[in-house]
Write a protein that binds this DNA or RNA. Sequence first.
DNA 1: AAGGCGGGGGC
DNA 2: GCCCCAGCCTT
Length: 336
Amino acid sequence: MASEPAPLATRSRSLVAWFARHARTFPWRENRTPYRVWIAETMLQQTRAATVVPYFETWMTRFPDLEALAQAPRSDVLATWQGLGYYRRARALHEAAVHLVRDHGGTFPTTETGWRALPGIGSYTAAAILAFAQGERTLAIDGNVRRVAARLLAHPAPKDAEIREALLPLLPRRQPERGTEALIELGATVCTPRQPRCPACPLAPACQAHQQDAVLAYPAPRARRTPPTRNRYALVHLRDDEILLERRPDEGLLGGLWGFPQTETLPTGRALPALRHAYTHFTLHLTPIVTPETPSALTDATRWTPVHQLESLPLSNVDRRVLDLLDQEGLLASTS
DNA sequence: AAGGCGGGGGC
DNA sequence: GCCCCAGCCTT
């Protein structure tokens, strides 16, 4: 007969000790003000920590506090976010900053309800801020913690309420946020999706999946379908050292970023090699067309842009790739 | 409950 | 290639 796994509460000290020894160093783990934690946790949404580091450093130089962010033009905010993805997050940060300065005396919320009323802050981020910036005893449930919980409980898909009930006893009495962060760190570095390192895990004695030798069976894999392909053309209008760019609508894909106008039907002009770009829900096949035609409709969102201004403009990665292609073809009459 | 929303690291 | 990442929001 198999022995019972140890109760989770008995592993609290081990978890905290493991974290004290193995925690990675990140800039947002220093000087934990509400502003810094808010920015970091927003950047970390669906984004690997290592990717976030340089963006966080640049952001803090450019927008060191709430007032600086509130006063910044939105295009500067987007340009700083460029390449990080999910650009709605940048808009939400800016909108929240303007709101807090204008209507809230430049002070931050202190309650979960207050934080969650801000755009871009959901269940995870609110809990993370309460824990890391305010020291509250709360569990921040992200993808890491979900996976750790699924394995500890040998449950295919535990709900947040079940995770809270089961894992709250792991938080230490003093500075409970150490336990909250340790669970996230554990999922990111030990209890990983593909190659978990169970021998190094401080919770292994309490892990039901480990005891059943079925760690990889939890959590249950998500149903997934291959995203469809969209064929588009990127219109490349060149005029001396200027390029015609279009600003995308605020809402939707790459909202607020600039880029080459795209069409579904083949325009006249010279085709460059197509490039493939994978988004979450579709794969883009983009063929740049260098067209001699005069652009038909110049709208407010359309602008002839000097090549030397391209650096400071928020552009998506796919549009950067088109630019690289033009450069390789020698089509960017560089003034250098 | 499901799908839109980026980009990249790691296998 | 595929999976998933310190998720949020709308429908």
